Each structure stands twice: as C-alpha cells, then as structure tokens.
Amino acid sequence: MTESPGVVDLLGVLAYAELSAFLRLAEDAAHLAPTLTDRAVLGELAVAEYAHFELLRDRLLSLGADPDKAMSPFVEALDEWHLKTTPGDWLEALVKAYVGTGIALDFYREAARRLDPAIADLVDEVLMDEGRSAFAVERVRAAVEADPTLTGRLALWARRLVGEALSQGQRVAAVRPELAQLLVEAVHDDQAEISRLFARLTEEHGKRMAALGI
C-alpha cells in the first residue's frame, strides 16, 4: 500500500512532529528543567526524537519524496498546537510530553495499521517511547504526592492539551484528506470498528492520566 498518497502524508506529519518534539524538548530542558539531571535526561530524549526524524526523512527520500514538501502541509497546525499549549512550568511540560503527545501518536499508530509492513514497522519504531513515559510519570507523580493541590491544575491542563490536539487534527484531516483516509481504511469504514477505535484511544488516555496520578 506504499503507493497511497496518504503514506507520504503520514511520514511527513510524523517527521515534522518528531522534529518539533526534538526542538521543544531541547527548549524545555534548557529553560524549565529544575536540575541538571532533569536537563540531561530531557536532552537525551530530545536526541532520540531527532534520530526518529532522520529515519523518517530518509524513508521519504527513498520513496522519491521531498521531505520539506512532505512536512510543509503540517507545519502550521503543529506549530499552532505548540503555541497554544506552551507549558508554564516544568510539570506542565512533562504532562504535555506524555499526555498531549501520546494522544496524537495513538492516532498515527492507528493510521499505519494496514500499511505495507515495512512502513508500519517504521512508524512503530519512530513512535517508540524511548523512556519519556517513565520519566514523566516518575516526576509528576512525585510532585502530586508531595502537593495534592497540583492535581486539579494538571488535570485541567491535560484536558486542554487533548482538546487542542483533536482540534488541530481536524484541521489536518480537512487539508489532507489522503491522511484522513488512512484512518478510515484502518477501521474498514465500519461504524462498530470506529467506535472501538475511539474506545481504545479513550482507554489509553485514561491509563496515562491514572499513571500520572491526576
């Protein structure tokens, strides 16, 4: 199924997402991390995101696609999401890296389910967690346990992240229908499967919130 135009769109949006994640994590490490250890760990995660970007860029080139052109349709939506969800402090940055990014990556995984195995395997590889979850969960849970009043604020922040992610996702789907079609094909255009898809996404989001203790 690599001939589908949606494949280049999927790799393009993922490539820009990974490049953006690298830049945001590096910025958060430099300006929000409270300790040198936190700065180092977040910097290491940023390096992993850049490596994922390189894999996607190279695959786009191997498919005969221009990486810049493949990424460009998604720049405005992703940049706007980051702008609207700029964390105000270290804990908000960690919740964004875990919850906000997680819901978006869940959609990309679903879109890749019925692709050529080589493409699907690449998507799985670049969506590997690389320790982000464990790092965020450990830091946020410790902070919430030390100060339970943080729970409400961080829960509201997480809901805002997801709402903005879904809003920008709708914009992307409207502009790039080929990418949206991959998700439709992944659920076989079946209403029951679509319901199961959203149930899976909701369940995964609930697990993340529970893991954070918020």
Results as ranks from 00 to 15, higher is better:
L78F: 07
G131T: 11
L23V: 10
Y16L: 07
G100I: 02
G169K: 09
G43F: 04
A165T: 08
S133H: 13
A211V: 01
A51S: 09
V137P: 11
V172N: 01
R196V: 01
M209Q: 00
A26E: 05
P34W: 03
D58F: 02
A143M: 07
Q181M: 12
D147K: 14
V187R: 03
A104F: 14
E3Y: 13
R139N: 14
R57E: 13
A211F: 03
L56A: 03
G102T: 10
E138N: 14
V137T: 13
E145P: 04
A70H: 04
E92Q: 15
E130I: 00
Q181W: 09
R141G: 06
H31P: 00
E44A: 10
E178D: 15
A15C: 07
A97P: 07
V7A: 11
P67G: 03
V184M: 09
T86R: 13
A186M: 05
Q191L: 13
A40F: 06
A199P: 00
W81A: 13
R200C: 00
V123M: 11
L201C: 01
L11M: 12
L14R: 08
R171S: 09
R24F: 06
R109I: 07
A111N: 09
S4A: 15
T202V: 00
T151R: 15
V123G: 06
A104T: 14
P5D: 12
E44L: 00
A210M: 04
G88D: 13
K69F: 00
A21G: 12
G100S: 09
A142D: 09
R113G: 11
L60N: 05
G88Q: 12
S72Q: 12
S62A: 15
A17N: 12
A134C: 06
V172G: 01
A51P: 00
R109L: 14
V162N: 05
E130W: 13
R200K: 08
T85P: 11
W81N: 10
V13N: 01
R109T: 13
A104L: 15
A15T: 09
L14W: 04
V172W: 01
P67S: 03
Q191T: 11
T85V: 07
G43M: 05
